[in-house]
Design a protein around this nucleic acid. Sequence first.
DNA 1: GCGTTACGATTACATCTGTAAACTGAATTG
DNA 2: CAATTCAGTTTACAGATGTAATCGTAACGC
Lengths: 129, 129
Amino acid sequence: MAEQGDEPGERISEAEHAVMEVLWRKSPLTAAEVCERVCEERDWSLPTVKTLLSRLVSKQAVSTEPDGRRFLYSPAMQRTDYVGSESRRLVDRLFGGRAAPLLAHLVEAEALSDEDISEIERLLKEIRQ
Amino acid sequence: MAEQGDEPGERISEAEHAVMEVLWRKSPLTAAEVCERVCEERDWSLPTVKTLLSRLVSKQAVSTEPDGRRFLYSPAMQRTDYVGSESRRLVDRLFGGRAAPLLAHLVEAEALSDEDISEIERLLKEIRQ
DNA sequence: GCGTTACGATTACATCTGTAAACTGAATTG
DNA sequence: CAATTCAGTTTACAGATGTAATCGTAACGC
């Protein structure tokens, strides 16, 4: 049998990520339905979405299920995992793998709203219990 | 006069970022000195470093100062700004622009050490006061 | 049944990135 | 002064990405 697909674990590009977000929000969807939900915002055409979907299938980040003559697409990876690995990459690259400096940076950059701060304190208290 | 340089504000790639880190740590440096500090780790050759440096100069992320027949390179942007914009990009892309969910995620993923947690609490207390 | 749709698959093509090698001109060395 | 060396500049080239157009084919309308 021919290996048609690429290896899993390849990086998901930013455009591909936009498609993933749509599928994480609701799935399964047809290509046309995905387009309905991003094409306008990103100024894409349907062919673009189809290309991105097939690349995602290649990367095994999206799975397909036949539905008559077309496919229904669903995420094949969890958003949590994606978010986790992306966050980790950033923290590793910019903050030596430590999350505290990231926070420190956000604080210094005043990138945290009061609401954020309260919520973070609450979170910490929770795990501190 | 011919515009030889590109516009500023273009994105810095990951390889370019590794060069920036070297220059943020110490500058000005010659191309060879930059290579001494990253080539082994990244398994690069000197030509690679030269290419990256000239791309960074193009992007106006690095500035040069002649020193005899060669150049001394220095960062033309602050690390804080770079870190800030990259962090913001991630937070925008993955957490709807809110920093708290990022923290929540790190907490849930148990990506925070006890030390991190203490430090974050201290930071929060500090800005809270 | 046959032309038209509606899909996915294949191909396209310009940029950006990673990674260098080749070229050029100035400086240094013998 | 000629040969070598050293630095920057130019060119290269494959793979990833953004963004489609085109092709082939199966279903559907008439």
